[in-house]
């Protein structure tokens, strides 16, 4: 069973937003609904300026708070670690949106708080998630942590890593390279 994780080198992102719309078309989402987005922040004082850009999406936590609170088990975790929502069971209480520390869920037209699916159906077929493949700067790398040939191993070793809200012990499957910017 694969052990899917994603590596995001945030300092390589230049904010083109291709990941957002590639995902939208991949999943047939309407324009106002997106599973990933960029947090941007300007730092510093002219002329010493830096721009922080953080690609955000569902972190596919190994200990997902959204799964813990889902009353009907609509949110579930696959054996390969991908956290998904079963729309059949979702009552639309939005408790997952309350519990998620990452603000990455968005209510779809069926009233289901959907989110990044790690392109589950596609990666199972050996494809790459849409946000990964469209990115010109190769900001994201997706792969199987248990696959010894995956480039992920080197990347995770080479970089100083950080995860979102480690204090909450959600154990995300997305590893960010620690930003070298202010």
């Amino acid at each position: 069973m694969p052990n899917y994780v994603m590596f995001i080198d945030q300092d390589k992102c230049t904010g083109c937003n291709a990941c957002r719309i590639a995902c939208q078309t991949q999943w047939g989402l309407p324009p106002e609904m997106n599973y990933n987005f960029l947090i941007e922040q300007e730092r510093g004082k002219y002329p010493n300026v830096e721009r922080l850009i953080i690609p955000m999406q569902c972190q596919h936590c190994d200990n997902p708070p959204c799964l813990t609170v889902c009353p009907t088990g609509a949110t579930y975790k696959r054996d390969d670690g991908i956290v998904l929502v079963d729309p059949k069971k979702c009552i639309g209480c939005k408790y997952c949106m309350i519990a998620c520390p990452y603000n990455v869920r968005i209510i779809n037209e069926q009233g289901v708080p959907e989110k990044c699916r790690f392109c589950a159906e596609y990666v199972t077929n050996g494809e790459t998630p849409a946000c990964v493949s469209t990115c010109m700067n190769d900001v994201r790398v997706f792969g199987d942590l248990d696959d010894p040939n995956s480039p992920l191993h080197d990347l995770l070793k080479e970089h100083e890593l950080m995860q979102m809200r480690e204090d909450l012990k959600t154990r995300p499957r997305i590893y960010y390279a620690q930003s070298k910017r202010g």
């Binding site: 291709a18 719309i21 939208q24 078309t25 991949q26 047939g28 493949s133 469209t134 010109m136």
Partner: peptide, 26 residues
């Protein structure tokens, strides 16, 4: 149309696309 992806050989895209490319297709 479902989606578009960058052609992996093409010297301008090399498998990647920008946001406007995805948008213009739609």
């Amino acid at each position: 149309l479902w989606k578009i992806e960058g052609n992996e050989v093409h010297m301008k895209s090399r498998g990647h696309l920008c946001a406007r490319g995805h948008g213009i297709a739609q």
